[in-house]
Design a protein around this nucleic acid. Structure first.
Length: 424
RNA sequence: GGAGAGAUGGCCGAGUUGGCUGAAGGCGCUCGCCUGCUAAGCGAGUGUAGGGCAAAAACCUUACCGAGAGUUCGAAUCUCUCUCUCUCCGCCA
């Protein structure tokens, strides 16, 4: 959420942002209601003030045994008047609040203006695309042939878009999780956390999934609880309503959780394989940073995520998302895309964002500096480090051999009981 | 699921015959003084959000004692609803 005062004072800039982001939020109605709201506020505060002052007077008179009936009846009128105006006030407040919560974050100046992913800019390309002297198979074919992935059985258990890993498939998923968490905790300085996978409405609102993107979420029937679409939600909310000491910044958490997404509106997209599932595991990196340092922290967060791919020796590229492709809460986002040989294209495997104070304002996450009065909002950041299912898919496709077996990347072998190869 | 207790500032903790309590007292923190150093001591200050006000300071003002609604001239205090926490019993991985 942006600051109300900022939006009011920079209304044209905000309107431009909405255009850049293809967002149709109506700010004209907002402007009118905000003006009305302030007008009424002045009036109502004057009335409340006189009520407070006179009520004190009544108290004094009563204590001295004087008759205060006139004043009491005057105030009865004033209170009725207040109640009446309060209704108009809250109507306008409602409009202001609802609009404010629907306005996306302001993109950082370094973010290219653009319409969609074709306007994203390439930051770097790392690793060599493998050269196959045979036609590489899709990971779902490899996985089914090797009997380590079984989508048919998974659909019996639940339905479409759920994974079932068997044998070495389950093992590689688990090995990757441990590999990633060990890297981030042991070498990158993150603290491992294991949060709830179900969160309440407030937490979802703080990180920006609600109220606008309810249709992307799984909601528990009869509860105001949701399955998390990413660990970002519970982990960022660990510190909601807290005031940190500046010296503790940046706070760095990592967590592996399942992620649940309804994938509404993506019917027919990536129907096969591990790329787009209703449930998948993801190792997430979350930072709470000082505003002056948050863009440096974004770069190191990105590097921390890239390190996973480097150690697995998977080719990838980093792209900077343009305004039109940027997520609702983010001010700047890098996507890491891994090479998928069978599809002959790069696919997103991580998304690293700086949300600046957008989430912190909603969640009320602050810090206090020594010797400075008051508190400031922290900047929140997060990124995948990495999406585990997609990493499995990338390993299967990039490390496949002509005989249909898959070589385990060197860096992962210690986590696989030194297994060198998955074969029938 | 049954029975009970509770929720007050950064923290602890008073305040429930409604009014002078934005909130005693303590701790912590900040600044100053004092002291070879440390510890202690002394003095002052120390919530958040909004509006007046475009902006810095100052000033004025409103709201906030778990959330929401109500009673009242006036609510931390009374009434109702909800949420959460704790204790005991039952059930359970």
């Amino acid at each position: 959420m942006l600051e109300l005062k900022y939006v009011r004072q920079n209304i044209d800039a905000v309107k431009r942002v909405l255009i850049d982001r293809n967002d149709s939020t109506d700010l004209d109605k907002f402007e009118k209601s905000e003006a009305k709201r302030r007008e009424i506020l002045v009036e109502i505060e004057a009335l409340r003030n006189s009520r407070n002052v006179v009520s004190d007077e009544i108290a004094k008179m009563k204590r001295q045994g004087e008759n205060a009936d006139t004043l009491v009846s005057d105030m009865r009128t004033v209170s009725a008047k207040i109640k009446e105006i309060e209704k108009t006030l809250s109507e306008n407040e409602e409009i202001v609040k609802n609009t404010l919560i629907s306005i996306p974050n302001i993109p950082h100046p370094s973010v290219p203006v653009g319409n969609d992913e074709s306007d994203n800019s390439l930051v770097r390309q790392v690793g060599n695309i493998p050269d196959f002297n045979f036609k590489p198979l899709a990971h779902w074919t490899l996985g089914e042939n090797l009997k380590i992935l079984d989508f048919e059985k998974a659909s019996k258990i639940t339905g479409a878009r759920f994974p079932l890993y068997m044998g070495a498939g389950a093992r590689i998923e688990r090995g990757l999780i441990n590999f990633m968490l060990d890297l981030h905790t042991g070498e990158h300085g993150y603290t491992e956390v294991l949060p709830p996978f179900i969160v309440n409405r407030n937490s979802m609102t703080n990180t920006g999934q609600l109220p606008k993107f309810e249709e992307d979420l799984f909601k528990l029937d009869g509860w105001d609880y949701y399955l998390i679409p990413t660990a970002e939600v519970p982990v960022t909310n660990i510190l909601q309503k807290e005031t940190l000491d500046e010296s503790t910044l940046p706070v760095k958490y990592t967590a592996c959780t399942p992620c649940f997404r309804s994938e509404a509106g993506s019917y027919g997209k990536d129907t096969r394989g591990l790329i787009r599932q209703h449930q998948f595991n993801k190792v997430e990196l979350v930072k709470f940073a000082h505003p002056d340092k948050s863009y440096d922290e974004l770069e190191t967060l990105l590097n921390n995520a890239e390190e996973v791919l480097k150690r697995l020796e998977l080719p990838y590229r980093v792209v900077l998302l343009c305004t039109g492709d940027l997520g609702f809460s983010a001010a700047k986002t890098y996507d890491i895309e891994v090479w998928m040989p069978a599809q002959g294209m790069y696919r997103e495997i991580s998304s690293c964002s700086n949300f600046e104070s957008f989430q912190a304002r909603r969640g009320n996450i602050r810090f206090k500096s020594k010797g400075k009065k008051g508190t400031e909002l922290v900047h929140t950041l997060n990124g995948s480090g990495l999406a585990v299912g997609r990493t499995v898919a990338a390993i299967l496709e990039n490390y496949q051999q002509e005989d249909g077996s898959v070589v385990i990347p060197d860096g992962l072998r210690p986590y696989m009981g030194n297994m060198e190869r998955i074969q029938l």
